[in-house]
Nucleic acid binder design. Structure first.
Length: 635
RNA sequence: GCCGCUGUGGCUCAGAGGUAGAGCAGCUCACUCGUAAUGAGCAGGCCGUGGGUUCGAUUCCCACCAGCGGCUCCA
């Protein structure tokens, strides 16, 4: 007999060799119906796996990450099987489960069309209906290679060849379809009750543009039809709050064909932008930053000195002035270096926190452009902190707390990643290790959780990245803190220490918003265009009922404007319902309806975008209410 | 940059080998109205750009440009 410890801590005795499925059946028939996989001592396994020794067992359903992945992985096999039925010559590449569903990459002669997807989906329905059992088996490396060679699957052969020595090579068979796969999987294809193929896209074999472009089919799967419907509904919602659409509708910003990747900001977008910038300036002043502005075009020689020429040239734009070569800055740091170098610094002056809202230009591949999220020119809310090595931890912590303060104001969730030395880098391995450890130490000292991102650092140093989560659950890298020993060296920066000798400062590069443009995009999607009052380009719209109320309405407008509130007035000859509808679609936080009653009593009838009709109140009461909301940055 | 799809008035979208429509928005007029669309009329388009096929192309073909979905890359 063996002892199995369950999730709730209870222990049960079973015969040796019992399967996970049998354990689930023993607990309850209901559980046995929904269970998809089991986690045995931390390892996710198939339901058919046998237990041979004492262990802890978590039964995984679709609500567990492991269960969800097993189901969706099975869905990807169903997809592959369907494709093989319809296109026997298609070569199989990889087909994993991903957070939002699954995909499978195929090498086919003719790309899939939307109609093909429908056909494939129908074939998948058949396979699901047949409820075919998935059977796991293992082969030796030679047998496995032979197996896939016989089936003419070159990608699979390549995968098997690259599997590490000693790795079990497992396969899953469902009817006439067998795939190389580590598993685990749902028991049978019938478990994939609700699925949908969503899109088809090109994808490089093994993610490298040097390799062949394959056809990737994306889909998603759930155990219940209603969950699938919810998901599709959410996708639709996400489309509605797309910042590119809202930006145009709300007159915030736009991108024209004349300037691919170079956004235009409209007057209302500028209001939003200026609010963000002035908030940024206020917060930086409080924390003893000094603001500078450096030129957009600087001599090419500077970029050789900074190392950008060697590590970043492909992303830069160049120009010529009077026969001399100049570069358009892709980063602000070299300019910041020149500023620091201008004077002699004492250790007493450090740390020096120098900030800059700097417009940078980067040549991004045309296919990567995406609204304001991914552009070719953007404003970094940059800062460079010059300090002694002893000050590193405190300064890093200072920036972490600054970033945390900022994100909280907007109600964002975020997570942190630490990126280490990339392939193309400057400086000694020793410096990199010291810098990386310094960042780790800072994070550990405040017990901040973080993920390590190997090889993703900047070419001059490791970094801590802050990833915001947007309305669709996509994450965007915004804030970053980069520690740099290289630039000070390259630019021969120094300060005079207490000993009267010259020393080399260390520097931090950091941004909070990351890119103002991207941040505005994220904010737009986050709030679905309905910005909190303090950020709204127009905070109040005054809606007089008929002509005779215009004069009083204008007076109300003046009083609000005198308080610094951003007001519009709708004097058009339209019915009140129509004016309200438009103001609501413009997502204006407060509408003031003005008729006889209000005019006679110096009042306003307040309608909130969120809560609807709030009834009449004195103009003063309204001004106090909105003032509090603005000052408190209520979201 | 690569793969696929798309490109028609400010916006959303019809349409067909014989040189274009609808709704919304805009303008004009009437209505003076109490919490999400009053009615009528008017105006607005080199059908992304450049080639080709054709008697004739916005429609078919090719190239380019831009957008969209991905890949890669990244703030």
């Amino acid at each position: 007999m063996i002892q199995v410890t369950l999730k709730d801590g209870s222990k049960k005795e079973y015969r040796k060799g019992i399967t996970i499925k049998e354990v689930a059946q023993d607990i309850s028939a209901g559980l046995a119906r929904v269970v998809l996989a089991g986690e045995v001592d931390g390892k996710v396994m198939d339901l058919s796996a046998e237990l041979h020794q004492d262990c802890t067992l978590h039964l995984l359903t679709f609500d567990d990450e492991g269960g969800k992945h097993a189901l969706r992985h099975t869905a990807s096999h169903v997809l592959a099987q369907a494709v093989k039925h319809l296109y026997p010559n298609a070569k199989l590449a990889i087909g994993p489960a991903i957070d939002t569903g699954f995909y499978y990459d195929f090498d086919v002669e003719k790309p899939f069309s939307v109609e093909d997807l429908e056909k494939i989906e129908a074939e998948m329905q058949k396979i699901v209906k047949e409820d075919i059992k998935l059977e796991r088996f293992t082969l030796s490396r030679d047998e496995a290679i032979k197996f896939m060679e016989e089936r003419n699957e070159p990608y699979k052969v390549e995968l098997i060849n690259d599997l590490p020595e000693g790795e079990t090579i497992s396969f899953y068979k469902q009817g006439d379809f067998t795939d190389l796969c580590a598993g685990p999987h749902a028991e049978s294809t019938g478990k994939v009750k609700a699925f949908k193929l969503l899109s088809v896209a090109g994808a490089y074999w093994r993610g490298s543009e040097k390799n062949k472009m394959l056809q990737r089919i994306y889909g998603t799967a759930f155990t219940k039809k209603s969950d699938l419907d919810d998901y599709l509904f959410r996708l639709e919602e996400a489309r509605k709050r797309d910042h590119r659409k809202l930006g145009r509708e709300l007159d915030l910003f736009d991108i024209y064909e004349e300037g691919p990747g170079f956004p235009f900001f409209m007057p209302k977008g500028m209001v939003l932008r200026n609010i963000l910038e002035s908030y940024w300036r206020d917060e930086h002043k409080k924390r003893n930053y000094q603001e500078i502005r450096t030129p957009i075009i600087l001599n090419e020689e500077l970029w050789h000195r900074s190392g950008h020429w060697d590590h970043y040239k492909d992303n830069m734009y160049f120009t010529k002035i009077d026969e001399q070569n100049f570069a358009i800055k892709p980063m602000n740091c070299p300019g910041g270096m020149l500023v620091f170098k201008r004077k002699l610094h004492s250790y007493r002056d450090l740390p020096q926190r120098i900030c800059e809202l700097g417009l940078v230009h980067r040549h991004e591949l045309s296919g990567t452009l995406h609204g304001l999220m991914r552009v070719r020119c953007f404003t970094q809310d940059d800062a460079h902190i010059f300090m002694t090595p002893e000050q590193i931890t405190d300064e890093v912590l200072g920036v972490i707390s600054l970033i945390d303060d900022f994100y909280k104001v907007f109600g964002f969730k975020y997570h942190v990643e630490l990126s280490t030395k990339p392939e193309s880098y400057m400086g000694s391995d020793e410096d990199w290790e010291i810098a990386t450890n310094a960042l780790k130490k800072a994070l550990d000292s405040i017990k901040m959780e973080y993920k390590i991102n190997e090889g993703d650092g900047a070419f001059y140093g490791p970094k801590i990245d802050f990833h915001l989560e947007d309305s669709i659950g996509r994450t965007w890298q915004c804030g970053t803190i980069q520690l740099d020993f290289q630039m000070p060296e390259r630019f021969d920066l120094s300060y005079i220490g207490a000993d009267g000798e010259k020393h080399r400062p260390v520097m931090i590069h950091r941004v909070v918003f990351g890119s103002i443009e991207r941040f505005i995009a994220i904010l737009t999607e986050h709030f679905a265009g309905a910005f909190p009052v303090w950020l709204s380009p127009i905070q109040v719209k005054i809606l007089p009922l008929v002509d005779k109320h215009h004069e009083y309405a204008a007076k109300v407008q003046k009083e609000l404007e005198a308080k610094g509130i951003r007001v519009e007035i709708d004097l058009r000859n339209e019915k009140i319902g129509y004016k309200i509808r438009e103001a609501q679609l413009e997502k204006i936080p407060y509408m003031l309806v003005i008729g006889d009653k209000e005019m006679d009593n110096n009042m306003v009838a307040v309608r909130s975008r969120k809560e609807g009709d709030l009834g009449a109140m004195s103009l003063n009461d309204f001004m106090n209410k909105i003032d509090q909301e603005i000052k408190g940055k209520v979201i």
